[in-house]
């Protein structure tokens, strides 16, 4: 709506208000760890996007004479047993790992928000039935199902997105539904109803903007858990399969030869850990910023 205000008509002397989003951004800016997290994530995304142009070596470029070499000026993070540059491989791996993280989270977000909003807004029996379905799905051992799916249908990356997304949407649906339910009881929503606003207007203008905070926070915290799941499956040999590469796969290769060539384990492991750290710090920071009451200090 604010965009629809004719700018010239806003009185010049009107004091500028601080919206809750601006407030949150001010709080977030004071949180060094969260900013660091944000910086790391943005850098990683940039690197992942640019990898084909900036990678120092080709993805499959081998140097069998070199073999597994420790870090050096030519190969900053060393090479693997085929003499392939580790930095290059980690960079290519980041494309897959980050993509899985974002796309699977996106799937979870879409299903979860839709399901949760409908259940919360409809209320009554519709809500009871929808949430009972979520309860039943919650009770299913999904981790095992994913392993099973991967075994049965082969290591298909698309399936991986869907499978992970299908697990993670449950919590999202619960969060959104709880939020919508509590908002519906708020008097400003009742006020909107008594003003005669249409259902869609109420959802768009009064419900969605107020559920956004927790959804953003949970999304940020879902990405690392999805990446972890992918790495876990790849480690077991059930996720991404060669010649594609992901951090989990690199770690599992690293484990095989860690006695002789520890850097092959350390570098991909470190990359994964730092990314997870960054995302978690960002998520925690966003929670503190968007919901100052929950952080209590």
């Amino acid at each position: 709506m604010s965009s629809s205000i004719p700018a010239a008509e806003i009185l010049e002397y009107a004091e500028k208000g601080t919206s809750l989003w601006q407030d949150a951004w001010i709080r977030l800016r004071k949180n060094t760890l969260a900013l660091f997290g944000l910086g790391v994530i943005l850098t990683l995304c940039l690197i992942a996007l640019m990898t084909p142009f900036i990678a120092p070596y080709g993805y499959e470029e081998q140097n069998l004479l070199l073999g597994a070499a420790p870090p050096s000026a030519e190969h900053w993070l060393g090479t693997d047993i085929f003499g392939r540059d580790m930095l290059t491989r980690i960079m290519y791996g980041s494309r897959v790992s980050l993509m899985v993280g974002f796309i699977a989270t996106g799937v979870a977000l879409a299903i979860g928000v839709l399901w949760g909003t409908i259940a919360g807004y409809a209320g009554g029996r519709v809500d009871a039935v929808m949430m009972r379905i979520v309860d039943i799905l919650y009770a299913l051992p999904f981790m095992i199902f994913i392993v099973l799916l991967m075994v049965v249908f082969g290591r298909n990356i698309l399936l991986l997105f869907l499978a992970i997304g299908a697990v993670e949407w449950l919590t999202m649906a619960r969060i959104v539904r709880g939020q919508v339910l509590s908002l519906r009881r708020q008097e400003f929503v009742e006020a909107a109803v008594s003003l005669g606003l249409s259902r869609w207007t109420i959802i768009r203008r009064h419900l969605i903007p107020n559920t956004l905070g927790p959804v953003i926070v949970y999304t940020t915290l879902t990405i690392p858990s999805v990446m972890l799941l992918e790495a876990f499956l790849s480690f077991l040999g059930l996720g991404i399969q060669p010649p594609q590469s992901s951090w989990g796969l690199l770690i599992s290769y690293g484990v095989e030869t860690m006695e002789e060539y520890p850097w092959l384990l350390l570098f991909p492991g470190l990359t994964l850990s730092i990314t997870l750290f960054a995302l978690n710090f960002l998520g925690d920071g966003l929670r503190d910023a968007l919901d100052p009451k929950a952080s209590r200090d």
């Binding site: 709506m1 604010s2 205000i5 806003i10 208000g17 919206s19 809750l20 989003w21 708020q186 008097e187 400003f188 009742e190 006020a191 909107a192 008594s194 003003l195 005669g196 203008r205 009064h206 903007p209 107020n210």
Partner: peptide
């Protein structure tokens, strides 16, 4: 609805926190 309106009890929850006075 235009012709009948309501004033609520709790001024902290009766206003949408993300909307300005305008």
């Amino acid at each position: 609805r235009r012709r009948m309106q309501m004033i609520f009890q709790d001024p902290y929850s009766s206003l949408n926190p993300r909307m300005t006075v305008f």
